[in-house]
Each structure stands twice: as C-alpha cells, then as structure tokens.
C-alpha cells in the first residue's frame, strides 16, 4: 500500500496529492509518469509526475477529476492509501542547455511542465513560462512556475486573470520575436495541437507530452499507440514526449474518447451509489 501524505484541493475538480513511494521517487526524472490503482477493483490510471522528492521518498501528482476513478481518488486524503503505485515510467525529458526555452502548460498540464522547466532552468537555460487555463479558478502553480522561470506569462481564455487570450497568442509573439531554441507544450490534446500549429511555421522544435489511454504502461498492451511522423509509436515506452510537429493529434484525441460511454456509465453508477464501491456488485 502507498500512503497519501498530503492533499490539497485547487478547485472543485482539480487536486494535488503527495504519495509515499520511495522506490519510485528514487528513480523519478522530469517527464516521466506513474500508474496508480486505487483499490482491488480499480483501473490502472497513468498520470504524469508533477514533482518528486527523493529525500522524502514522495511523488506529487495533480489530477483533474473527470471520471469515476479520478472522482474516487479525489475523496481520498491524508492517511488513506492506494493499492498500487508504479513507476517511474516512460523516457525522461532530455535536459540540456538549449539556450532559451519556452515552457507552456495548459490547465493541469502545468503540473508536469513544472519539473521539466525546473530542470531546464538548473541546466542553465533561460526559461520563459506560459501558464494558461480557461479561467482564474483553474490556473495552477503560478507561484511555483514563477520561482523557476526567468519570465512568466499568465493567460486565461475568459480574461479573469492575466492576459485575455489563448496560450497560442504569447507563443506566436515569442516565435515572431525570435531567439527561442526549444518549446515544451503540455496540456489537453487540443491545446498541444494548436501550440504545435502555431510554432511549426517558425521551425522551432516543440515537444509535447502525450496522455493517451493506457493499461499496463510498460509496452505490453499497445493501448497507447499514436501516430508520429506516420509511424505507430507506443506512448508508454517510446514516449511520453514526442516532437509535436510529427504527432497526429486528431488520432490521439479520437482514441482518447474510446470509452466515453463506459466512463459515463461508471460515473453515473458511482454517483448513484453515493460513492460506495460495494454497491456496484
């Protein structure tokens, strides 16, 4: 069992948990993900690592509650335990001194950007961060991102905080100004797709971290396959990071919707049962 040491609710839907998993923390690097399972009947949920502390032996995750499992996880807090916590999985980010790097995070995508941006900063890069969300309530980790960035840009779709625009607007401006050596863009599929569309004409390499559906997360099942440069890749062992200009985002987003009806059925039943797993039997 893996203990939850801390939990913070950022909004009605978004929360942060710190999990005790020394073996995972000892090996964790920016860009990697974990797979967790809440209980015996639970599914395996892949989540990108938002932070890790090797000394304390902890991994931090930031989750947006959408379906049954993420709602269930949301109810758990300090003192509760998870049945399984596996990782770190995937290939770590390639951290080196590129020069000037833009790190853009959309919604909960800001969380996995954070350790990458921090490592890039530590490697000597000039880090320009863009923290984006639909509205102020959904903005995440502005302060943490601010601490490790040379420059911080905040945008909201509705203008409730920071600039009133989409994440692509400052990205476009930065590309036009020039001098950008590398871009990281992590967030919902649609956000990454348009970030890549924005940067492509400028020829600035843009790395994305894909969040496809997975089962084992170790290469065994192939559920996470995506098309990159016309070739089929497994996100879990070939990724999760890829050259965004090569990714078929429409396929990614279509495959992410595969279980919408079952996800709804499961959530409805869960809500009907008042969150009691036993009632499902």
């Amino acid at each position: 069992m893996y203990k939850i040491l801390d939990k913070v609710d950022y909004s009605d839907d978004v929360y942060m948990q710190v999990i005790e998993a020394p073996a995972v923390a000892a090996a964790a690097q920016p860009g990697q993900f974990i797979v967790l399972r809440i209980h015996e009947e639970g599914e395996r949920i892949p989540l990108t690592i938002a932070d890790f502390d090797r000394d304390k032996g902890t991994i931090t995750i930031v989750v947006q509650a959408i379906g049954k499992s993420t709602r269930h996880l949301q109810k758990l807090g300090k003192g509760d335990s998870l049945a399984n916590f596996i990782g770190p999985l995937g290939i770590p980010s390639e951290i080196e001194n590129y020069g000037t790097v833009v790190c853009a995070g959309g919604g909960v995508g800001v969380a996995p950007v954070y350790p990458i941006a921090r490592a890039l900063k530590e490697a000597g890069n000039k880090v320009i961060s863009i923290v984006a969300a639909r509205n102020e309530k959904l903005l995440l980790w502005q302060d943490k991102m601010g601490e490790i960035s040379d420059e911080l840009i905040v945008t909201t779709d509705d203008g409730s905080c920071g600039r009133h625009c989409l994440v692509t607007e400052p990205l476009q401006e930065l590309c036009e100004t020039g001098g950008i050596d590398l871009i990281y863009a992590i967030g919902p599929g649609i956000m990454m797709k348009f970030c890549c569309k924005t940067t492509e004409p400028f020829g600035v390499k843009t790395i994305v971290s894909l969040n496809s559906i997975m089962v084992d997360g170790t290469g065994m099942c192939g559920a996470c396959r995506v098309s990159v440069g016309g070739e089929t890749k497994f996100v879990c062992v070939d990724g999760p990071e890829f050259d965004g200009h090569q990714v078929d985002f429409d396929l990614l987003m279509s495959r992410q919707r595969q279980y919408l009806s079952q996800e709804k059925e499961s959530l409805d039943l869960y809500v009907e049962c008042g969150g009691d797993q036993r009632c499902l039997k």
Binding site: E41, G42, E43, R44, K68, Y259, Q262, S266, L280, K281
Partner: peptide, 8 residues
C-alpha cells in the same frame, strides 16, 4: 465484470 471492476 465492468462496471463492478473499473476497467472498461
């Protein structure tokens, strides 16, 4: 055994 088990 979905939905008793979560994996669809």
């Amino acid at each position: 055994r979905f939905p008793e088990y979560d994996t669809p």
